[in-house]
Structure formats: structure tokens, C-alpha cells
């Protein structure tokens, strides 16, 4: 029981990550692959934020004025910083990938992976 209470957050993120991973390798449509990649990144972000938490009355990492600073009372700020930048970079990579997908659709007229490979094979 203690094992479940202590570790169930990791298991939820692993399940979420595997959903994204399955979408990335099994789906044929390129947009579905991209959505799978986003789910994967979201799982990693949730994982990083969860390792920053401290149980026992810890608050957000903003210091009170004129208070004695005890590190156990504030959450770990470092994963928050890393994920703050990772979220914005995730949006940027999503934009670049969508731009590439628009270019692929203009050239081939489809987004299904096997149809694109078929067109390439016929061209040779």
C-alpha cells in the first residue's frame, strides 16, 4: 500500500508517456504522430514538476518578505524553471513540425505515411 501511495504519480506519467509513444510509432497519419509527440512531452513535463514537490506544508517557490528562510518550506524551483522553458520550446517545435507537414501536404497531397512512400516508389 505504501508502495502505491509513494509511486503512483510515476505510473500515471509512464502510462501517459506510453500512449504518446504508441501514437508516434503505430499511427500512419503524420498529424496523429505529432499529437503523440505532444502527449509524450506533456508526460515528461508532469514528471519533472512532480519531482519538485515536497510534502509537509511546502509552498510555491516565492519567498515571504522578512521571513526566516527554511529550504524545506519551499518547493524545488529548479524543475519549474526547466519546464517553463520546455513548454515554450514545445510550442515552437510544434509550430515548426506543422509547417513541415503543410509543405509535405502541398507536395504529395496526402498525409498518410504509406501513401507518401507509394508515391515515392512510383516516381522511381
Amino acid at each position: 500500500m505504501e508502495l502505491i501511495i509513494g509511486k503512483y504519480n510515476y505510473w500515471i506519467y509512464i502510462v501517459l508517456m506510453m500512449i504518446g509513444f504508441y501514437a508516434m510509432i503505430a499511427k500512419r497519419n503524420l498529424v496523429k504522430k505529432l499529437v503523440g509527440m505532444n502527449i509524450f512531452q506533456t508526460a515528461i513535463i508532469l514528471y519533472f514538476v512532480s519531482i519538485a514537490s515536497k510534502k509537509g506544508g511546502a509552498t510555491i517557490p516565492i519567498l515571504f518578505k522578512d521571513a526566516v528562510i527554511i529550504p524545506e518550506q519551499y518547493m524545488n524551483p529548479l524543475p519549474h524553471v526547466l519546464m517553463l522553458t520546455a513548454i515554450v520550446v514545445m510550442v515552437s517545435t510544434f509550430g515548426v513540425a506543422l509547417a513541415l507537414i503543410i509543405m509535405i501536404f502541398r507536395r504529395y497531397g496526402t498525409l498518410e505515411e504509406d501513401e507518401i512512400l507509394e508515391i515515392e516508389r512510383n516516381r522511381k
Binding site: 508502495l3 509511486k7 510515476y10 509512464i14 519531482i51 514537490s53 515536497k54 510534502k55 524545506e72
Partner: peptide, 15 residues
């Protein structure tokens, strides 16, 4: 994950 620190452990290496 069985080797990972528990959720919210204030003494974990990351914290």
C-alpha cells in the same frame, strides 16, 4: 520506479 524516491520526499537527491 521502485528505486525512485517517493512522491513529495523532501530528502530526495533532486531536492
Amino acid at each position: 520506479t521502485f528505486e525512485m524516491p517517493d512522491w513529495g520526499d523532501a530528502g530526495s537527491p533532486a531536492n
